[in-house]
């Protein structure tokens, strides 16, 4: 993947402000490539890192990263062979079993993921799934609440990368486990909305094994000149399809061997 940047510094700042406005005031905007059709993935990351700089300057604390577009079906659809990544901050974290407001979101959707907490720093390129497992403190189940700021959830890779991979909120919970005590490839997952099963799958849906997604994330970070620091919380990508939620909805994500993560949505 090329991290070639074609946008001028002014354009990066301009697009960052546009995404920041949409994220913080919860409104939909057209995808960025409508105006910048030649925008590259590298440009997308330049906007994302500018956005992170602003959030950190405003006092947000980065807690980790997330991998997105990690299922084969999604990658084929987007015509890419790498996942996208996005940063996660403390402001996006919500506790398990809590009420999550939707007034500050555009069109939230939820997906089930296996999350990793790292005990040692990982540096790409060349990071493998085995390296990831060796560097993992523990794994836990998580629900990511994604929220594309693009109208109708319609986007392309440069736009979604600029929008921080549609990151919005996340909930970690359930049971912390050592990765070596589990078969992370075959974990079954069931998502229930208001007591009804809405989507299901097994963890191999994520690049064959969730640790593969973390390895790719570390290798993308290397291309951006960064590593994955010890202590990071990292989500490996949706095992299930993303399900739309609205105020009044209650979600329970049930994971084999990892317990469950629940939350409800309010105005």
């Amino acid at each position: 993947m090329s991290m070639n940047i074609t946008l001028s510094r002014e354009d990066v700042v301009r697009l960052c402000e546009r995404v920041e406005g949409a994220q913080t005031r919860a409104y939909a905007i057209p995808k960025l490539t409508d105006e910048y059709p030649n925008m590259t993935i590298g440009d997308g990351y330049a906007v994302q890192l500018e956005l992170r700089k602003r959030f950190l300057a405003a006092g947000h604390k980065q807690v980790g990263w997330k991998a997105g577009l990690t299922s084969k079906a999604k990658m084929i659809q987007m015509g890419v062979n790498v996942p996208s990544i996005g940063f996660l901050t403390d402001r996006m974290s919500r506790p398990e079993s809590s009420a999550i407001s939707t007034f500050d979101l555009v069109h939230p959707r939820v997906e089930c993921e296996v999350a990793f907490v790292m005990k040692t720093t990982l540096q790409g390129p060349g990071c493998t799934a085995a390296d990831v497992l060796a560097a993992t403190d523990y794994v836990l189940p998580a629900v990511e609440i994604i929220d594309s700021r693009f109208s109708g959830f319609k986007f392309d890779l440069p736009s979604v990368v600029a929008d921080n991979g549609s990151s919005a909120r996340f909930v970690g919970g359930g049971r912390a486990r050592y990765a070596e005590d589990l078969d992370l490839r075959t974990l079954g997952v069931v998502m229930e909305k208001n007591g009804e099963i809405v989507t299901m799958g097994a963890s191999a849906a994520v690049l064959g094994h969730p640790a593969e997604a973390i390895a790719m994330l570390v290798n993308i970070l290397a291309e951006l000149g960064e590593n994955l620091p010890a202590g990071s919380f990292v989500m490996s990508g949706g095992i299930t399809e993303a399900v739309a939620v609205k105020p009044g909805d209650s979600i329970v994500a049930r994971f084999q061997e990892l317990g469950s993560v629940s939350m409800r949505f309010v105005e």
Binding site: T186, L187, G188, V189, G201, A202, S203, A204
Partner: peptide, 27 residues
């Protein structure tokens, strides 16, 4: 064995074909 939440991974000729879980069958 948790037959309800046990994941099901199906591969065809060495490639991932689909995934599922016990709960897909009547809960």
């Amino acid at each position: 064995l948790d037959i309800t939440l046990a994941g099901m991974v199906l591969e065809k000729n060495g490639e991932l074909f689909s995934t599922g879980v016990g709960a897909a069958v009547q809960g």
